[in-house]
Simulated scan of single mutants.
Amino acid sequence: MDQDPLTTAFHRDFDLFEPLDAAALRAVFRLRYEVYCREFHFEREEDCPEEQEIDEYDADSWHCVLQHRSSGTAAGCVRIVPASGRGSHTELPMEKYCRGSFLDVPERPDRLDRGLVCEVSRLAVHGRFRRRRGEAATPRGDVRTRQIAAEQYRSFPMLALGLFMGATAMATLHGKEHAFAMMEPSLARILRRTGLPMAQVGRLQEYHGRRAAFYIHRETASEGIERSEFLRDLYHHAYDIFTGNMEPPADRVSRVRAA
């Protein structure tokens, strides 16, 4: 079966990888600084020494990067924060900043086995890959986009979906069953349309824009991915890349500190 032209273009022009050295991590934190501090002012520049947007969760997180092949630019990034981290924090980012918005439902991070819970966090796409047809509306691009023309494969949903599938593959490889994310409802609608039925488990609040807590179970995600040829290709591509690159937690902490 022929591959979808969008995924063909995506694999041709972008590399997906886990940053495994301090230099690669510095590129991640610099990208986040450009997007979250300079462009959208979600974080204060003065709180980010050496133009590195980094917080207490990064040492325990698994990071994923999209790199533009021809330019070597870090085009996008995302991290997966485990609830059972080894650092000084005891809460997921959404629990620390958004707990008051959670709905009274069983599918909340504070009501599930902590060892099986993670949060998809800090998803960002570089501005140069979003500035088409108003795509600079959010750090992930214009989440209102309904369709993607073949010649616009660099735009948001393609890059963001590639990163989200990378995060899903990482969470699966690390044995996480429950994934959460703070996101715009319109992004959740795009994920649903492409095959991932995200469930809203929190009220809308102001947190890096108008966002709410969303949840998906690993089995539900797997079923949705396997039903979608588009997502299945992105997911298995990421899974194959990350297989064999699992890193001991102590090594991950050491290199984040070195960055």
Rank of each mutant, 00 (worst) to 15 (best):
E91R: 14
R114T: 13
R86Y: 10
S88N: 13
R99Y: 12
R111K: 11
T90F: 05
R69W: 06
V78L: 03
P93E: 10
F102Y: 07
W62K: 08
I80H: 00
R111S: 01
R108G: 12
T73S: 14
Y97K: 02
D113R: 07
S61M: 09
A74D: 07
L103W: 10
Q67K: 15
M94A: 05
W62T: 11
H63I: 08
G72I: 09
L66F: 05
W62P: 09
A75L: 06
V105S: 05
G115R: 08
H63V: 05
D113C: 14
R79M: 04
C77W: 05
G72Q: 10
E95R: 02
E91Q: 12
V81N: 08
G115N: 04
L112E: 04
F102P: 07
G76A: 09
C77Q: 14
E91W: 06
R114C: 06
P93N: 01
M94R: 11
V65H: 06
P109G: 01
A74M: 09
P106D: 10
L103P: 05
V105Y: 03
G87R: 08
R79D: 04
C98E: 00
H89G: 15
V105C: 07
R111P: 00
W62F: 11
V78F: 02
V81H: 05
A74L: 04
E95A: 02
R111W: 00
